[in-house]
């Protein structure tokens, strides 16, 4: 474990050296995600000036939901973005073999190979939104609430990574897994807003099937002492379960690769 941690640190510092070499790219990359989020947030702001609340959720409360999902997403974006390129950049080109002749776990190698700087922008937006919302709403921070915040972000990140892993592994079989991943990934957009604005089916989808809601709506409800908030404690369980399934599926894909080699 410590070996992998110190290896990751080494990978990360090397990657940062490259990023510093292309400083303009680093800044553009971070700005790009900020611009993407700013567009949606500005839209929310414009609308929420006109009405007092959205199904009982005020502007700042919505920002909390939005901020939490953005934080969870940023974990995935920074540390696991390379999953998207597994098929295109590694398997199709034969570059994946390089991971298999090295004495470290190939999934670790894949993830460590590229820390994605664009995720930093998402992270900053998420932090800013949560802080802004917390101050504006006067959230009384208790130990449990602080714990919930950390648990929500970490397990939210885990849910994102696991769902991406589950879908990206298909690139061991199909030429381009990106559409499949998008099909699942894009559902997180629902979780940018309080789930109460959606019909029941979408609530079930976002809670039990692709549980992005556990990363935003439920923990936000908990932090705001609203009903349904306690369901947020399910997030770590869901993340662990999905990560376990994702890793098993990865191993299955790896086994398939071992028998066909692309």
């Amino acid at each position: 474990m410590t070996r992998y941690l110190s290896l990751y640190w080494l990978f990360l510092t090397q990657r940062l050296k490259v990023l510093m070499e292309y400083r303009a790219n680093f800044i553009i990359g971070a700005l790009s995600t900020i611009a993407l989020q700013a567009s949606s947030i500005l839209a929310i702001w414009v609308v929420m000036r006109q009405v007092p609340d959205l199904n009982g959720w005020t502007y700042d409360e919505i920002l909390l939901v939005y901020g939490l999902i953005t934080l969870a997403k940023s974990i995935n974006h920074m540390f696991a973005d390379n999953l998207w390129t597994l098929g295109r950049q590694y398997i199709r080109s034969g570059g994946f073999d390089r991971f298999l002749v090295r004495p470290i776990d190939p999934l670790f190698h894949l993830l460590a190979d590229r820390f994605c700087q664009d995720g930093v922008g998402n992270f900053l937006v998420g932090v800013a939104l949560v802080v802004k919302a917390s101050v504006a709403l006067g959230i009384q921070w208790t130990l449990l609430k602080a714990l919930m915040l950390v648990a929500a972000v970490v397990s939210g990140g885990g849910i994102f990574i696991a769902l991406n892993l589950l879908t990206c592994v298909t690139s061991f079989w199909i030429v381009d897994s990106v559409p499949v991943t998008r099909l699942v990934f894009d559902n997180h957009l629902f979780a940018q807003y309080p789930l109460t604005i959606y019909p029941k089916a979408i609530n079930i989808l976002l809670t039990w099937i692709v549980p992005y809601g556990l990363a935003s709506f439920y923990p936000a409800s908990y932090l705001l002492d609203r009903s349904l908030g306690n369901l947020a404690w399910a997030a770590p369980v869901a993340a662990a379960l999905l990560l376990f399934l994702g890793y098993r599926f990865w191993q299955f894909g790896l086994k398939h690769y071992g028998s066909t080699g692309t």
Partner: peptide, 11 residues
């Protein structure tokens, strides 16, 4: 293919 099997890439 032989080399890939010898290196452990292929089963």
């Amino acid at each position: 293919t032989t080399i890939k099997m010898l290196t452990g890439v292929l089963m």
